[in-house]
Amino acid sequence: MNNERPDPSKTTPDNTDAGGDDDSKDDFRLVALAQQGDMRAYDALVTRHRGRIFAMIRNMTHNEADAWDISQDVFVKAWQALPKFQAKARFSTWLYRIAHNAVYDWSRKRRIESVGELNDEIFERDRIDPAATTTPSASEAPDAALGHGELRIKIEKALAKLSPDHREVVILKDVQGLAYKEIAEVMECTLGTVMSRLFYARQKLQTLLKDEYDAR
């Protein structure tokens, strides 16, 4: 998160009409060009969406290097599946769905590979230097670091303690700002399931954060 660059071109369903804004129109225009094989148009799409996809995956994996690789895989898979994309959903929602599947595959593969090997999860997350980075990244502005650094670390620790489904629904809803309906599409479940997961995830998250406040 040292390289925070909020994308002003992105909007959330909280304050816009999902799928009807100018950004979505631009996406559809670029998608149409990319579907004809225009790599420059696809490169523009990657540039527009890489920040959100990378942030979502990094929050899910808690590993910047893996998030870097998985994000790229997402865009390669999206390119390969681009002919199947239809303008029924926002392009970003479609990308989130591919990212959801990629993270699921990554976590499943990681579980398989970790059998019989040294499991790095045995190390307590609290003992890992939160300032350590595995890839080069630009420094956060000093004022932003002071303002958000501690709270961010606490929230990230709390998010890490949630189950993957609960963590994802919080990230998609409360961080990425997707609508309930979009989250249901991404996670391939019903609207009721999304609401239920979010309800319990928020409760647990607030409890975890309250505990950390009380501990200080």
């Binding site: 998160m1 925070e4 660059r5 992105k10 920040g51 929050n59 958000h148 990230i171 961080v175 990425q176």
Partner: peptide, 9 residues
Amino acid sequence: AVPASVEPP
């Protein structure tokens, strides 16, 4: 605290 968009390295 948790930005929705982060440029990858």
